[in-house]
C-alpha cells in the first residue's frame, strides 16, 4: 500500500477514535485515554521534523475543535512530535534506523517500542495534564492522572498496532 494513503487512513481513523470515542469516555480516577500520538510515532523515520510538527499541529487542532479543549491536544502533540527524533536518537539501535521504515512493534521489536514510545507518551501525558490542571498545588493529582492513564494508553496503542499494522514479510 502506498505510504501516503496508509498514513492518511491512520490519521482519519485516529482522529475519529480519539475525538468521538475516547474523549467521550468517563472512566473515573482522572483517567483519560489518548492514542493519537501513535500516528506521529509511526510516521516514517526519514520524514523531516518540520513536516512532523505540521502534521501534529493539524491533528491536534482537529481533535481540539471537536472536543472543545482548545489548544490542549495541539500543544502536547507538538511537544511529542518535536521530541521524537531526540528520544529516538537516545534509544537508537546499533546500526541506526537505516533498514527500517517506521517504528512499529514488528519492525523495531516490543522492547524498543516500550522504551521510546513509553518515554514520549509519558512526556506527552504529563504535559497534557499539567496544562489541563495548571495548578501546582494539585501536582499530585497531575501525577496521579499521568500515572494511571499512561499504562492504559500504552496498552491501547500496542494492541492497535497488533491488530491493524501488517507484519513485514520475512526477509
Amino acid at each position: 500500500m502506498n505510504d501516503i494513503i496508509k498514513h492518511s487512513i491512520r490519521f482519519v481513523a485516529l482522529v475519529i477514535a480519539q475525538a468521538y470515542i475516547l474523549n467521550q469516555l468517563e472512566i473515573g480516577f482522572g483517567i483519560q485515554l489518548m492514542v493519537y500520538p501513535l500516528l506521529i510515532f509511526l510516521l516514517p523515520f526519514e520524514l523531516g521534523l518540520i513536516y512532523l510538527m505540521l502534521i501534529a499541529f493539524v491533528m491536534g487542532v482537529l481533535i481540539d475543535a471537536v472536543s472543545n479543549t482548545y489548544g490542549l491536544h495541539t500543544s502536547s502533540l507538538l511537544l511529542f512530535a518535536y521530541l521524537r527524533p531526540f528520544i529516538m536518537k537516545v534509544f537508537s539501535p546499533r546500526d541506526g534506523y537505516e533498514n527500517q521504515r517506521e517504528g512499529n512493534i514488528f519492525e523495531m521489536g516490543p522492547r524498543w517500542f516500550l522504551f521510546v514510545f513509553g518515554t514520549l507518551l509519558a512526556i506527552h501525558h504529563f504535559w497534557f495534564f499539567l496544562l489541563e490542571i495548571f495548578r501546582f498545588d494539585e501536582f499530585f493529582f497531575i501525577l496521579q492522572k499521568t500515572i494511571l492513564s499512561l499504562p492504559i494508553s500504552y496498552m491501547l496503542c500496542y494492541f492497535l498496532q497488533a491488530l491493524f499494522v501488517s507484519k513485514p514479510k520475512e526477509r
Binding site: M53, L54, F57, Y70, G71, T74, S75, L78, L131
Partner: peptide, 14 residues
C-alpha cells in the same frame, strides 16, 4: 517552527 506553533497552541488554550 516548534516554538511558533507551540505559542499559537498555548495562546489559543489560555
Amino acid at each position: 517552527v516548534f516554538v511558533a506553533l507551540q505559542i499559537f497552541a498555548l495562546s489559543i488554550y489560555f
